[in-house]
Design a protein around this nucleic acid. Structure first.
Length: 916
RNA sequence: GCCCAGGUGGCGGAAUUGGCAGACGCGCUGGAUUUAGGAUCCAGUACCUUCGGGUGUAAGGGUUCGACCCCCUUCCUGGGUACCA
């Protein structure tokens, strides 16, 4: 049944079909269907109060089109949606208003779901998930318990941004120039008890797995760089007058002869011993200063190298040279061994440092430029060895090998691999996150756990996880029983952090203070009587919560089996759906989300929960939709227009937004029409509230309808490109949709009289249709939606110009358009007596025989310049073609009096005659 | 700085195993229709031109019968990253 709209009333039509899809569960994905499965997934959104933005609309429309196409192709499509709903904004709102974050979150989710439906996105809503739902996060907690059990989670003191004035820990983005974003209070670094995941154990697997996935190259590169595997050597330098030696890591053992000094990080454990009495004061002052700097400051002030001589000397193992040991903060304690050999000739940073402090610079690698001159220092590439004793003349690569061999033989060094990747700080001092299913007990209690050897012992890693508390007493972390999951967030009155650096959970005494069973892992509040039995002890719950990444690391699995109460996912279901066949989302998650999720997935593979090695075999990033193009005229304080190229970044005058018609382009730049010597700044900016250039999908749907919005967003350009929104540009696709309606219907809302199965259909119409089927089908596979739409516009024109066309042609066209504009397609499909939902109608096939034509247009070129064209058979011989070509006047004129030197004939494409 | 992606009409873009650059759309110009229109329809629209033609894909060079496409150099824009030895 269709609506009874006479004209194109998109509001009525879209609302009607959305209701139908909901009621009929049109997009239900069936487990174990015999159809081939297609698991299509979007990066799920954080349901913010602001609602969906243009980027979401682009993302979901793109995947929706692919999903609808796959349904028409006979696939059992799983296209789910969910909510990454833990996060700071809801907590901050709770602190301000006292509203429980869950309340705010559910309200926002309702809004997001409504908006998604209003865009006509085909989702199986029965599989909706929400990371803040205890039935969901119990499995996040379960997963953490597995990581814990396998020794991949440990506790450590790690620095956070602590703001004493606010009594809270701040996220990096809440700290600006060392001050809190709110209130501008001083922020300091403070070590807190934190959870850390050993992602570094998976560094190699994460690197190797990238070879197996079909991802954008740039994303793979980013992950590769982030993991930052480097191969080099660890070398021990004897220290003059000290027992200890100093071990360094270098990727360039070939430059060992060029080491003229050494540097240790200010935090290096040997600094004290290295420091001579004369240098003590200077070194200690330097270390104190370095400690006061945050990581950010240390890099901010990186422009000038600083450091202090320790007074000690090291001995270069390859040539016995004595070289000074410095302490400098350009060496980081967290990478390698926290100490380096400095080779100023062949490292930019060492060169800068050596120049600043007048340290000798010795060239040990030689390379000549094109003119035969030495390439100036610092030269960081590889070349030929010089000043390196027995290794002179070797290539860098060969020297690396031989020097490592020599070091190994002399037991002063060995080949070594290092990673930039750090272990993952996995805790936050917040309320609105998953509670850790962990309790802390005393050392004696831990001993008893081993003795009892119950579920608690079996769920713990070998050696346990322990950590000294503020009083210096050792405490042990133990897992709560899997049966007691989910460990729910307690209801609290005040969402403010405890003020001690712990989350608000620390104040929920009844929740935190528990009796814990050392055998079973069960717990009850200490407000109750201590149960019988000496396996029950007093314990304290972990008060950190998990970061937002936790829920998003494995959500794709839960879509397959969202209501399972026995397991994270049923192995049979996992075997059917496997990993998502297609994953679409923004490139901003190229590193962290995608790396963390891969880590968990590889772990789940190792413990047998999943059967695939990688979670996202195919990944696609949609580009960013920018705000509208802006033409900005600058005016100085006197209101006088000034040219954009004279304006610095500290411009303080007035910015005037001009219309496109107010500017003129000359060369590469735009100028003001009123005074063409004034250059105008022309560009599109990222959408942002502060800039006021945000396009709200709701407004667009209100004015044009979802079908037109979807078609426009896909028509804007290649999906992966970033492109500016244009409020006039949408008129094109919107007109196309309206014309499509008028092509199929007449004024009274009945089918157009042009649609006839008795009148003959012209060859041109047939050809246009089949060309379109071919083009659209091909473009679907590559997500080239912009050109698919362009081709449908051509078909529309052809049908408008035709006297009549068949209902079969009309239905095929409706089907082609259906993934893009599903509502109007359903409506017209229904009116064209199509069976069922157009979504399930088998995708039209093109008839290749209609498209092949023997006659082709052949371009005739003289000396590479187009001079005419002829219609010939594809199989025409070169001689036939030349004869025909020579009959063309312009061709004659261009070869007259010249000798033909060469002829290049590409059948079906061009004929190029070279003559002079 | 380094890494990645990209520069094509006034605008969004199309065309690549190297073969007639500018499909499709916006905007603009002119026309039709309408009481009116931010509706609809038709035509034109890269630039220059002495109307023969010439020039054009960020700039310069190279390879080729032929280059938006391949190679080298430079410039610009966007994204990522921040002393990782």
């Amino acid at each position: 049944m269709a609506t009874d709209c006479k004209d194109y009333n998109f509001k009525e039509i879209e609302a009607y079909w959305q209701k139908q899809w909901d009621a009929q569960k049109t997009f239900h994905a069936e487990d174990f269907s015999e159809k081939p499965k297609y698991f299509l997934m979007d990066m799920f959104p954080y349901p913010s109060g602001a609602g969906l933005h243009a980027g979401h609309a682009e993302n979901y429309t793109a995947s929706d089109i692919l999903g609808r196409y796959k349904v028409a192709r006979g696939f059992n499509v799983l296209h789910p949606m969910g909510w990454d709903a833990f996060g700071l904004p809801a907590e901050q709102y709770a602190i301000k208003t006292g509203t429980h974050p869950a309340v705010t979150t559910l309200k926002n989710i309702d809004h997001f779901r409504e908006q998604t439906k209003r865009m006509g996105i085909a989702i199986d809503w029965d599989r909706e998930i929400n990371t803040t739902d205890p039935d969901y996060y119990r499995w996040t907690q379960w997963l953490f318990l597995q990581l814990f059990k396998h020794g991949l989670a440990f506790a450590d003191h790690r620095p956070v941004n602590w703001c004493p004035a606010l009594g809270t820990v701040l996220a990096n983005e809440e700290v600006i120039d060392g001050k809190s974003e709110v209130g501008g209070h001083l922020v300091e670094r403070r070590n807190l008890k934190q959870w850390v995941l050993r992602i570094t154990r998976y560094a190699d697997k994460l690197l190797k797995g990238l070879d197996k996935v079909d991802w954008p190259e740039s994303t793979k590169t980013q992950q590769t760089n982030w993991i930052g595997r480097s191969v080099g050597a660890e070398v021990s330098f004897k220290l003059k007058g000290l027992e200890e030696s100093l071990t360094i890591y270098t990727t360039r053992p070939d430059t060992l002869f060029g080491a003229t000094y050494m540097v240790v990080a200010p935090e290096h454990p040997l600094v004290g011993k290295l420091t001579s009495s004369e240098q003590k004061e200077a070194v200690e002052a330097y270390i104190a200063k370095a400690a006061a700097k945050s990581d950010l400051d240390r890099t901010d002030l990186a422009k000038e190298k600083t450091g202090v001589f320790t007074g000690s000397y090291a001995i270069n193992p390859v040539n016995g040279a004595e070289i000074p040991v410095w302490v400098a903060d350009y060496v980081l304690i967290s990478y390698g061994t926290g100490a380096i050999m400095a080779v100023p000739a062949h490292d930019d940073r060492d060169h800068e440092f050596a120049t600043t402090f007048n340290i000798p610079i010795i060239r040990v690698i030689e390379k000549k430029d094109a003119k035969g001159n030495d390439i100036p220092l610092p030269f960081t590439d590889i070349g030929t060895m010089v000043n390196s004793g027995p290794f002179n003349g070797l290539s860098s690569d060969e020297a690396k090998r031989q020097i490592i061999e020599k070091l190994e033989a002399e037991k002063v060094g060995h080949a070594a691999v290092n990673y930039k990747l750090r272990d993952w700080l996995f805790s936050r001092q917040r309320y609105w996150g998953e509670p850790f299913p962990i309790v802390w007990v005393s050392e004696e209690a831990y001993a008893k756990v081993l003795q009892l050897n119950g579920a608690v012992a079996k769920g713990s890693p070998e050696g346990g996880v322990c950590m000294s508390n503020d009083e210096g007493v050792m405490e042990y972390a133990l897992p709560i029983s899997e049966g007691s999951l989910p460990l729910r967030l307690p209801e609290i009155e005040d969402y403010n952090p405890s003020g001690t650096g712990e989350s608000a959970l620390a104040n929920a005494t009844e929740w935190v203070q528990i009796w814990f069973n050392l055998k079973t892992g069960d717990a009850i509040s200490r407000t109750s009587e201590k149960p019988e039995g000496d396996e029950w002890v007093a314990a304290r719950r972990e008060t950190n919560t998990m970061p937002q990444w936790a829920g998003s690391c494995w959500y794709y699995l839960r879509y397959c089996d969202p209501r399972n109460t026995q397991a994270l996912i049923d192995p049979k279901v996992e075997a059917y759906w496997g990993a998502p066949d297609f994953y679409i989302g923004g490139a901003e998650h190229a590193v962290l989300h995608l790396l963390y999720a891969r880590f968990w997935h590889q772990f789940l593979f190792d413990i047998g929960v999943v059967t695939t090695e990688e979670p996202f075999p195919k990944l696609f990033h949609q580009g960013i939709i920018l705000g509208e193009m802006e033409y900005v005229l600058f005016k100085d304080s006197d209101g006088k227009a000034i040219s954009a190229d004279t304006v610095g970044s500290n411009f303080e005058g007035e910015r005037v937004n001009l219309q496109e018609s107010d500017v003129i382009k000359k060369g590469d730049f735009f100028f003001w029409k009123e005074d063409e010597s004034i250059r105008v700044d022309a560009r599109a900016y990222k959408m942002s509230k502060s800039r006021g250039n945000v396009i709200n999908p709701d407004d667009v749907i209100e004015r044009y309808g979802a079908d037109s919005m979807r078609t426009y967003i896909m028509f804007m350009g290649p999906l992966e490109d970033s492109k500016p929104w244009s409020s006039s540009g949408i008129e094109g696709p919107a007109r196309f949709i309206r014309r499509f309606w008028r092509l199929m219907t007449d004024d009274s809302g009945t089918l157009s009289s042009k649609i006839s199965d008795t009148a003959p259909e012209s060859g041109d119409v047939k050809k246009a249709l089949h060309e379109t089927i071919k083009k659209v089908s091909e473009d679907m596979e590559t997500l080239s939606y912009n050109t698919a739409i362009a081709q449908m516009m051509i078909l529309l024109k052809a049908l408008q110009n035709a006297d009549s066309f068949s209902s079969a042609t009309a239905r095929a066209f409706v089907q082609l358009l259906a993934p893009f504009a599903p509502h109007i397609a359903e409506e017209l499909w229904s009116r064209l007596d199509g069976k069922g939902s157009v979504a399930y109608a088998p995708w039209p096939e093109y008839d290749a025989s209609i498209l092949v034509s023997d006659e082709v247009k052949l371009g005739i070129l003289i000396n590479g310049k187009p001079r005419g064209e002829i219609l010939v058979s594809k199989k025409a011989t070169q001689d036939e073609v030349i004869e025909l070509a020579q009959k063309i006047e312009r061709v004659q004129a261009n070869i007259e009096g010249k000798t033909i030197r060469k002829v290049v004939y590409v059948p079906g494409k061009i004929l190029n005659i070279v003559a002079n």
